[in-house]
């Protein structure tokens, strides 16, 4: 069963009508072909209309859609082979941060990303995609391995933030993220970062320094979630919609502010409406972008990376 968000209600109704029409056809053998094709067309048009004018808050809702594909879903669908690699070789294995070697169109790629759970039990197991320090250290271990064997790195970002727990503090959450920022700047292999869902703050940036940082159309990326922003600036949760507007957190806003390198379109109705289509789009994008980046000399790539991030800021 597909889950519909509040603003997707009109699409839901049309889908229900379509189902009913199909039932009638099966039962009474009445020819409803024209009605069916009318409805299909209407669904497409309605979806187009709704998705043509999404508000920032609606995009935040889409980025958290329960049926939106998660990191391992992408990796498994895009690669011919995938070997998951576990652990930071120091403390443990963080289930909120996954990674491993994947074969993408016959090319070996190191995939790393936060993983959310698909049901209540798995959500807990994955800690809601909130990594601990060992997650960031595992990510760094895999990146350094990729560098050693000259394999490009792709990170898939989808997190409500780094985990703010007591033990995370004891084990140095801040240091773990900080170290990754500095090390990722210096990686000698191509690095592509894709925000596939939620890109919240330092927890996202901790695997988000790359030659190409791109966002899926309906993802968000900012320094704080709209809810937490509302809590701090307005002192309650009621202003999350205004906060979502103010933060300029959508893919197009981030691109216009030159804080990311590109936006990847999602299939009509969003990634959750057509996961297979989404996987195909991203696979093609990644392949092309890796091809381009591999042609650049490693020193030059690092120089460009430093130059790009150094240029970010607005001051007089």
């Amino acid at each position: 069963m597909r889950t519909y968000l509040d603003f997707e209600e009109p699409i839901k109704e049309l889908h229900e009508q379509l189902e009913k029409t199909k039932e009638i056809q099966e039962k009474s053998k009445v020819d409803v072909k024209t009605l069916t094709s009318d409805l299909v067309q209407k669904i497409e048009q309605t979806t187009k209309d709704i998705f043509a004018s999404l508000t920032p808050w609606q995009r935040v809702q889409l980025s958290r859609h329960p049926q939106r594909p998660y990191t391992l879903g992408y990796i498994n669908a895009m690669t011919e082979e995938f070997i998951e690699l576990h652990g930071d070789r120091n403390f443990g294995d963080d289930h909120a941060m996954v990674g491993g070697l994947g074969m993408l169109n016959g090319r070996s790629v190191m995939f790393i990303g936060q993983q959310k759970g698909i049901n209540t039990k798995m959500r807990q197991y994955r800690n809601f995609g909130m990594a601990n320090p060992e997650g960031y250290r595992k990510a760094l271990r895999l990146m350094k391995m990729a560098e050693k064997f000259d394999i490009p790195v792709v990170t898939l970002i989808d997190t409500p933030g780094a985990f703010p727990g007591l033990e995370a503090e004891e084990r140095g959450q801040g240091e773990a993220i900080a170290k990754n920022l500095m090390e990722m700047v210096k990686l000698r292999v191509p690095v592509i970062c894709v925000i596939i869902g939620e890109g919240a703050s330092g927890g996202a940036l901790g695997i988000g320094i790359g030659d190409q940082v791109v966002m899926l159309e309906n993802s968000w990326y900012s320094v704080i979630s709209p809810e937490n922003c509302s809590t701090i600036l307005w002192r309650n949760w009621d202003h999350k919609i205004e906060a979502a507007d103010a933060l300029k957190l959508t893919s197009m806003d981030m691109l216009n502010n030159k804080l990311i390198d590109g936006v990847i379109s999602e299939p009509l109705g969003g990634a959750h409406a057509d996961p297979e289509g989404m996987f195909e789009i991203l696979k093609k994008e990644l392949t092309e972008r890796i091809d381009t980046l591999e042609k650049i000399d490693p020193e030059k790539r690092i120089k460009n990376r430093i130059k790009k991030f150094s240029a970010m800021g607005e001051f007089q």
């Binding site: 900080a178 920022l181 320094i209 806003d253 991030f309 970010m312 607005e314």
Partner: peptide, 14 residues
């Protein structure tokens, strides 16, 4: 400064 603020972490580290 939202996204701009976040990227200062990347900038200073770089």
């Amino acid at each position: 400064e939202a996204g701009f603020s976040l990227m200062q972490m990347a900038k200073t580290s770089a």
